[in-house]
Every structure is written in structure tokens, then in C-alpha cells.
């Protein structure tokens, strides 16, 4: 099965009933709730580094770090929140998906599904695609807000900006629109992960080596796709600023 055909079948099945709601909810819980701790943990550290680095360099170049809250918030909302969340989701969810679908292919479970009259794309890909898209959307909002909160806390502790000053500085640079664009990015990246991971799973060659290489290739391809898509979306969104 070629990638365009697989994408077409997946998208077509996603927009046609019936849906396996129970499975979608299980996947959503796995994708969003179970990924939340690791994403929050990593993004808080990313926010701390962003604040400290931007403060250091602004002081060095313009002898003033008054623009740090706005600059950091801009970076977090437009790039860091969505992209780092998606890359973490790729390693946590995407790798697991490729390995799971790959193992099912190798152990002939996918053939067994086809024999029982079940469309494997509808059965395996659709619940994961819906869950990852919705999960990516929700996670990007939560991750961005948590990241901004961490940035605000560290700005107060390290740079002495009160929360009020941080928010005022932030509002000069970012708008609600940025959060909307960040969540669109999150949903798009979320959709890319199961599509690419399941595709590599479906193409998996037999044996443990086959499953291993399908997993590795899916993580690499998903990460590259996210970076490229980030550029495309950023370019499109730049027309709205």
C-alpha cells in the first residue's frame, strides 16, 4: 500500500460512520491524559531555559531584559508549546503505535481482521487518528498555558517581574490568536503522528528486526514531518498577523 493511498483510505474512513467510540476514548485517555505529565514536565524546563537564555542575551546585547516576558511568551506560543509537545508525543505515542501495528502485521492479526471482514484501517487507524488529533489539540492548549505559567514563575523568581508585569509584557507581543494557531498546530501534528506510525506499522517486515526498524523509521519520519509542517503552518499563519 502506497502512502497516498493509505492517507486517502484513513481520511475517508475517518469522515464516515460507524465510529468505535469506546476505543476512541481509550486511545484519547492514552494519548492525552497519560502523556500530560511528561509533556508538562519537559515544557516547564523548556520555559525556564527560554526565560534564562533570553534574559542573558538581552542583557548582553541591549543591556535590558524588559522584553523577556513578551519575547518568551511569543516563542512559547508560536513554536515551543506545540512543537515540543508533538515531538514528545511522537516518541511516546508514535513509537508505540508503529510497534503495536507492526507486531499485529507480523503475527498476522491484520490478515485475521481482513478475513473476519474488518477493514484494518477503520479498525486500527481511525480511533487513533481521531484520538491523536483531539489529544494534540487539547495537549497543545494545556501545554502552552502550563509553559507560560512556568515562564511567569521563573520570571518572578529569577528576574523579579511580578505576574502582573509579566502578563502586561506578554500581552504586548501575543494575542488570543496565537493560542488558536498553536492549537491548530497541535491538532495537525497530532494527526500526523498516527498516520505515519500506522503506515510504517502496516508496511512492517517480518521478525523483531522488522518491528524495530518500522518503529525507528516511524519516529524519524513523524519528527521530520512535524518540523516541515511547522514551517508550512508558520508561513500560512504569518499572513494573518
Amino acid at each position: 500500500m502506497t502512502l497516498p493511498l493509505f492517507l486517502w483510505q484513513s481520511v475517508r474512513a475517518t469522515f464516515t460512520a460507524p465510529y468505535r467510540w469506546k476505543d476512541i476514548l481509550i486511545q484519547l485517555e492514552f494519548v492525552s491524559w497519560q502523556s500530560l505529565p511528561v509533556i508538562l514536565f519537559c515544557l516547564c524546563f523548556a520555559a525556564i531555559v527560554t526565560i534564562m537564555e533570553s534574559s542573558f542575551h538581552m542583557k548582553l546585547v541591549v543591556q535590558n531584559d524588559a522584553l523577556v516576558p513578551g519575547f518568551a511568551a511569543l516563542l512559547i506560543l508560536r513554536e515551543l508549546g506545540a512543537v515540543v509537545s508533538a515531538l514528545l508525543l511522537t516518541s511516546r505515542v508514535g513509537a508505540g503505535l508503529a510497534a503495536e501495528v507492526g507486531s499485529m502485521k507480523v503475527t498476522e492479526q491484520i490478515d485475521a481482521l481482513r478475513m473476519l471482514g474488518i477493514d484494518p484501517v477503520r479498525f486500527l487507524v481511525v480511533p487513533r487518528l481521531i484520538a491523536c488529533t483531539v489529544g494534540g489539540f487539547i495537549l497543545s492548549i494545556i501545554a502552552n498555558l502550563a509553559c507560560l505559567y512556568a515562564a511567569m514563575v521563573v520570571s518572578e523568581i529569577k528576574l523579579g517581574y511580578s505576574p502582573g508585569a509579566f502578563i502586561t509584557g506578554m500581552r504586548a507581543f501575543v494575542d488570543f490568536q496565537d493560542l488558536v494557531f498553536a492549537s491548530i498546530k497541535g491538532a495537525t501534528f497530532g494527526a500526523v503522528i498516527p498516520l505515519i506510525s500506522c503506515y510504517f506499522g502496516f508496511r512492517c517486515q517480518s521478525g523483531a528486526e522488522g518491528v524495530g526498524s518500522a518503529t525507528t523509521n516511524s519516529v524519524v519520519a513523524s519528527s521530520v514531518s512535524i518540523i516541515v509542517l511547522d514551517f508550512v503552518l508558520t508561513y500560512i499563519f504569518s499572513h494573518f498577523y
Binding site: 503475527t107 498476522e108 492479526q109 490478515d111 485475521a112 478475513m115
Partner: peptide, 8 residues
Amino acid sequence: MVFQHPAL
């Protein structure tokens, strides 16, 4: 079809 693997 009964597969080579149990395919459960």
C-alpha cells in the same frame, strides 16, 4: 483461515 501464528 487458521494462520501460522495464532493471530489472536
